[in-house]
């Protein structure tokens, strides 16, 4: 029942059915520690579903998921978070009436130790912890160049900053595994480059990244490994170099040779 060191995150025969349709069908995958792995595929290929299954947001019908050799198939989202898995959302799901800073401090949640009495009376460990959380949150915000917007509401930020805030909030949980759901959808080419640099920076800090993205420039620039899904099934996997030359992938997704050549170095 235990995985080896290489099998950091492992999906075994995972299936999820929505009303008779396989959103994910018998998916087997291994993700190695410290890498950036991307899942790509056309719309409706089941990419986001895979993310929801890993983070416990959706229960699945068949299969097992192991994280660091421990089965997490039956755990809830907050338990999975406490094991060191964090994620962002395609539609961001920011807390719209909490300030940017507060959004990030919510992510710091699992590191608090003060008890209820200390919280209700604002005594003991509480004040120190609160200050610690704010300091840490500001540090994370400065990584994303958001520290000057700490007291604004998320709705007042441009899309790029809101995407980054989603990542900052997830990073505040100090995860080992970070799952990013379309972090650059709707951003300009310049902004995509910035996000790519940030993702690599996060990876260099020892965080394993799982990325779902349509924007090939981001996927090809950051990924060590790519998994291609179509109709819930894995049709290919490999390094960016291999994927760009995979006939099946080109037909299903990349849309012909011309576009594939565009990413050819």
């Amino acid at each position: 029942m235990t995985g080896t060191g290489d099998l950091y995150l492992e999906l075994r025969d995972v299936s999820k059915v929505f009303g008779g349709v396989f959103a994910v069908n018998n998916l087997n995958s291994n993700f190695s520690k410290g890498s950036v792995t991307s899942i790509i595929g056309p719309n409706g290929a089941g990419k986001t579903t895979v993310l929801n299954l890993i983070t416990g947001v959706l229960p699945f019908d068949k299969g097992e998921i192991f994280f660091k050799g421990r089965e997490i198939s039956k755990l809830g989202p907050s338990q999975i978070c406490s094991l060191g898995v964090a994620r962002t959302f395609q539609d961001l799901q920011l807390f719209n009436f909490l300030s940017v800073l507060e959004n990030v401090t919510v992510g710091y949640h699992r590191w608090y130790r003060s008890n209820l009495a200390e919280i209700l009376l604002h005594i003991g460990r509480f004040m120190k912890e609160e200050k610690e959380a704010i300091d840490q949150a500001m540090e994370i915000l400065s990584l994303f160049h958001l520290e000057r917007k700490a007291f604004e509401l998320p709705s007042s930020l441009p899309l790029r900053d809101r995407k980054l805030l989603g990542m900052a909030r997830a990073l505040a949980t100090k995860p080992e595994l970070l799952l990013l759901d379309e972090p650059v959808g709707g951003l300009s080419t310049e902004e995509v480059k910035e996000v790519a640099e940030t993702i690599l920076k996060i990876r260099d800090q020892g965080v394993t990244v799982l990325l779902i993205e349509h924007r090939m420039e981001l996927v090809m620039d950051t990924s060590d490994w790519i998994i291609v899904l179509n109709f819930g099934e894995k049709i290919a996997e490999g390094t960016p170099y291999e994927i760009q030359r995979n006939e099946q992938v080109i037909n299903a997704y990349l849309g012909g040779e011309a576009e594939a050549a565009e990413y050819d170095n």
């Binding site: 947001v57 809830g76 989202p77 907050s78 994620r87 919510v106 949640h109 949980t173």
Partner: peptide, 9 residues
């Protein structure tokens, strides 16, 4: 959903 995935029970 976001609250749960950030560790809030």
């Amino acid at each position: 959903v976001a609250a749960m995935t950030l560790g809030i029970r």
